[in-house]
């Protein structure tokens, strides 16, 4: 469950950044991609854990990719049949879930070494963490880039949208701002605990200068 926040795959481990940067231009797209990835991670973690004793170690990566690709194809068809507009908006990024390093990382590091129950719990935690990070980025970008959340205007008709926030550079800016905010918050929390002022990454800050 640490994957939800303390080991968040996107914001802490920096995994799965391709979809996080590319399809978070609206909350709806971010939500759909997050749910699709969650489903793929959950289904493939279950199968990897169930089949781990039958898969020889020499071909384990090939087998994991095959399992992931199967679930991605299923998700692709389900989205096209059930929510075609969102399927159209996500475009090629659904197929790219196959090469999302976050999923392969969880299979190699966890699901292939643990019983089914724990593998499923891990997938739920990491998948939820990915979904939370995607929705955070999507909300930030849609508000500034379109003045709305889920298509509902929140900044009024006079707001001039910051188009760059829904273009690819906006993804990098958003991730940078969120990481900066998290680092600042972490530094403040450590300062309040220890009484020592710290810069990001735990470096002790020099004491404030005395002015004569």
């Amino acid at each position: 469950m640490r994957g939800i926040w303390r080991e968040n795959p996107v914001l802490i481990q920096m995994l799965g950044l391709c979809p996080a940067l590319a399809v978070t231009n609206t909350v709806a797209n971010a939500l759909a991609m997050g749910i699709a990835t969650f489903f793929v991670l959950l289904g493939s973690s279950f199968l990897v854990s169930v089949l781990k004793s039958w898969i020889p170690k020499e071909i384990r990566i090939s087998a994991y990719i095959l399992i992931i690709a199967t679930f991605v194809t299923i998700v692709d068809m389900l989205l096209a049949a059930m929510v075609p507009d969102i399927h159209k908006a996500l475009g090629a990024f659904i197929a790219l879930i196959v090469v999302n390093c976050m999923i392969l990382h969880r299979h190699e590091a966890f699901a292939s070494k643990r019983p089914v129950g724990r593998a499923l719990l891990d997938a739920v935690g990491v998948g939820a963490g990915f979904l939370i990070a995607m929705v955070m980025m999507g909300t930030f970008r849609e508000i500034l880039g379109n003045g709305s959340i889920l298509g509902v205007s929140v900044l009024g008709p006079d707001f001039e949208p910051w188009i760059i926030m829904i273009l690819p550079p906006g993804g990098f800016f958003t991730l940078g701002f969120i990481l900066l905010g998290m680092s600042w918050w972490k530094g403040r929390r450590e300062t309040s605990k220890s009484g020592v002022r710290r810069w990001p990454h735990g470096v002790a800050a020099p004491p404030p200068r005395r002015v004569a």
Binding site: L51, I55, I59, A63, L66, I67, T70, T73, L78, A80
Partner: peptide, 30 residues
């Protein structure tokens, strides 16, 4: 090794075909 991958491929194909049979009429209808 070959047998394991072949079996996994066949199972994957079966799953995909089952979902395809359900989804394709809906996709075409849309």
């Amino acid at each position: 090794l070959i047998g394991t991958l072949a079996a996994a491929g066949a199972l994957a194909g079966l799953l995909i075909v089952m979902v395809h049979v359900w989804a394709q009429p809906r996709i075409q209808e849309h």
